[in-house]
Design a binder for these strands. Sequence first.
DNA 1: CTGTTAGCGCATTCAA
DNA 2: TTGAATGCGCTAACAG
Lengths: 339, 339
Amino acid sequence: MATGRDVAKLAGTSTAVVSYVFNNGPRNVSAETRAKVLAAAEKLNYHPNALARALSFGRTASVGLIVPDIANPFFGELARALEDAAISRGDLLLIGDSALDVDREAQIVAAFVERRVDSVVMVSLHEHPDFSAFTRAGIPIVALHPVDAASPASSVTIDYDAASRAAAEHMIGHGYETIALLNGPSESVGAGHHRRGFAAAVAAGVAAGGASIRTTEVNSATSRADAATMALDWLVTPDRPRAVICATDEQAYGVLHAAHRLGLRVPQDLAVMGFDGTEHSAYAVPALSTVRQPIPLIAERAVGLLRDAESGPVHEVLGHELELRESCGCHDEAGSAHR
Amino acid sequence: MATGRDVAKLAGTSTAVVSYVFNNGPRNVSAETRAKVLAAAEKLNYHPNALARALSFGRTASVGLIVPDIANPFFGELARALEDAAISRGDLLLIGDSALDVDREAQIVAAFVERRVDSVVMVSLHEHPDFSAFTRAGIPIVALHPVDAASPASSVTIDYDAASRAAAEHMIGHGYETIALLNGPSESVGAGHHRRGFAAAVAAGVAAGGASIRTTEVNSATSRADAATMALDWLVTPDRPRAVICATDEQAYGVLHAAHRLGLRVPQDLAVMGFDGTEHSAYAVPALSTVRQPIPLIAERAVGLLRDAESGPVHEVLGHELELRESCGCHDEAGSAHR
DNA sequence: CTGTTAGCGCATTCAA
DNA sequence: TTGAATGCGCTAACAG
């Protein structure tokens, strides 16, 4: 690869001028020499070495993203949105997939620190993540899930408790009397929020004098495969619930599949509610009712916080939205009337 | 961040020794000083600066991956598999999402070149990609789709023509007499392969004296949203086909959704075949019959080619597999008998 | 407006 | 076995 020196030599100038040209500063360059430099660079296929530049400049123009599972479309959409935001700032987004493996997560954290990413956006596998590797390196970090008050990380999230509660209240409003929460692994990051939101909705329903509701919590990994396997056993029993509220869309897809295999009609025999609200949820069979997280907004705010990150951790809470479609029993897009 | 000099100072040695310790060479270090260096590094939270190291060493220990759409689970799974392969080599995988946008693709290519990734794995948006930015920089590249014979890139693919043909032959074997190909955009990268494979199967069927088959090709973007929208209009007409073969699973999901909305039963009223075979296809409603690409193998071979990439472009063709489930009419996992 | 030069942090050759 | 010194490619302060 050609270096700045090669370009300078060919253009008959110094390396400083080459630098000035490619950075539009900090010194001015005459139009004539600028043209010569550009021509030489073109001819030599010169691309400034970002490593050397970063080493000198003290900034890598890159932000790291760590997600638990890049094969989950929710994180795919998130990565997409963050890349949009990063690129429009002139940064490169480095995506790391921890693949639901804590060792892998640690490896990626280390790799990002060593590569001196300017900042990090992270969805950790841990309930109480250890951000010290980043903070000790002076790398600002935004978590996309709630963090401890004492944590050095900023966060951008929706109000999970409220969102879960809204989902549950909606199902209660449908009049379903046996409702199950299909939660993530019971000690997983978000499980407590879904549990609390669900319980709050039930308590409020009872207080309001509604019919008594039987509830249960079951668990599966956050994947459609696990949820389907689990649901295939679970929903075959005669005391299966009338409605299922899932902690993620992925799990909801698994339930939808299991219901189909078992010959259960959704929503007539089993109502299903998801959580996350990726674009895919609209194209499920049947269309999945879900709680939509505002992914583009989350991405935008996350990089926004990174930009002016000097002022200590900030915690932003964004709004969620109930996306009501067919699977919960609201709309009927498939023909036969119900509800 | 602490530097090697800080560590050397605290350990009472020179920076050279620090380097020797962290690289296990090229010189030996006495156990005693080694311990002192390690202790000092630990205390200072020393992480070697990968940029400086790369600048000096001439190697960044990173491989770039460019995919058209990271929100498509096929590419998510691919990224996952490639990250596995890269990490086991001690490399970091940089994932770039071109988001189906050729300008974005060009930006990522430039960013990877400037960051001097050691090699690139790419699924281009172009039918005839221009790899010159990489080749002129001496960066070896593996495409995961067929490339021109004159191309400097290696490739790892399945035989798309044969795979498409196998899918079509299977549907013909079911006895469906009106079969449509839901292809990608007609000038898109893989459209020609699917078209040829489909045509070959039909011709072979006719030659074998089978019943005459009416065929059509329709097109949509490679997304379930587009496919669903398109199918909603298309399948409502009385002359809709009995079977649809899709160029991607994403499009098949869109068809499944549209069929549901239109009250068409799959496979009784409409048989559907996908293509790609990600894990998700097994959990569709109904389970999707599809052509499975061997993603882990593709990933492994891709980084394998990168390792010993000095010997000019290599083209590997891997095997595909027909994954027969419910949507094509083969299995019935949902109760009522048919076929 | 432009050239010279000193780092940025690390790896490594050459001396010791 | 260890230390001093040089270079990787680029930026920016310092001199012209």
